[in-house]
Design a protein around this nucleic acid. Structure first.
Lengths: 158, 158
DNA sequence: ATACATGCAAACATTTTGCTTTGGC
DNA sequence: GCCAAAGCAAAATGTTTGCATGTAT
């Protein structure tokens, strides 16, 4: 139920499909009017490959940001990607915002240590989907989505 | 299922029980070593009476903060109350942190407009409790709790 | 050639801390 | 009187914007 790292072979498949996804999103981004820049490529790749939400700083300081793009640039790219609905911004307890790639029909929930801030992706069947539909109907809100995080003391910190 | 404002009579009961709760918490705070100051009294009362999470600014600028306590003071009181487990800090999408009173056996989820930031409390049976126990067991994390928010465009903004 | 993207630096918003004074016990 | 709490102001943190320059199209 918790997320485990995959075997070598499986990681290989992951890597392939991640590369594909990054390429697809780059195409979609271009179709939406963005230019094909090194920063955009890097940022998409970083987000697609990450197994957890990343902050602006995480991305701006990632060794995979090979273009060495400035924080402001990363910020502006993230804003655009969010506007296009390619990524989602999460509000965790940290002062900074976190971002994840958005894939149709896919949704992740997280387990976060209140002490050290460690973020762990949960491999669970999210029990909220049905409820979400119901709330959408009854509230009059549109384009509903949800954010579910579990907080607690991780084994190391406890 | 969404939260509706109560009738006048019912509000009266709410008011009574809120007052009781605030008094109880003040006692507990004193027992925990805090001094009985006007700021502490005000802040507890404000939080207990609020039907939604409040930011530091919300509290510091509330007319019910009759002592006119400084922001730094409010901040330090909130930190203490959180340490004591009387309140919980929420990370919403806003840049600021939000606080809610914590009551044993009680838990609220929220519906938030991505456009105007309006926060609405949901009157739902949260479907996550069972899952939480399960995750606690399997992850080795302690003192687990969760935060569930629904985001979307509210009727006014849509 | 044009408009979008970038880098750098400055402006912002919010939280957090230091230090002196006030006030609860 | 003692130590926690408050006030004020400054530091810290993270986000956002302005503007001159570079670059994808």
């Amino acid at each position: 139920m918790l997320h485990h790292h995959h075997s070598a072979t499986c990681q290989h498949h992951d890597e392939d499909s991640a590369r594909d996804l990054a390429a697809t999103m780059l195409d979609r981004a271009r179709a939406a009017g963005l230019r094909r820049t090194k920063a955009l490529e890097n940022i998409l790749s970083i987000l697609v490959h990450s197994h957890q939400p990343l902050s602006l700083a995480d991305i701006a300081e990632s060794p995979d940001l090979t273009s060495g793009a400035d924080k402001a640039t990363v910020y502006r790219v993230l804003v655009k990607l969010e506007e296009l609905g390619f990524i989602r911004r999460l509000g965790l307890h940290d002062r900074s915002a976190y971002y994840t790639i958005l894939q149709a029909g896919h949704h992740d929930d997280y387990l976060i240590c209140t002490q050290c801030g460690r973020i762990q992706r949960l491999d669970i069947a999210c029990p909220v989907e049905a409820l979400e539909k119901q709330i959408e109907k009854q509230s009059g809100f549109r384009k509903l989505y949800h954010e579910l995080e579990f907080y607690g003391l991780c084994p190391k910190c406890a």
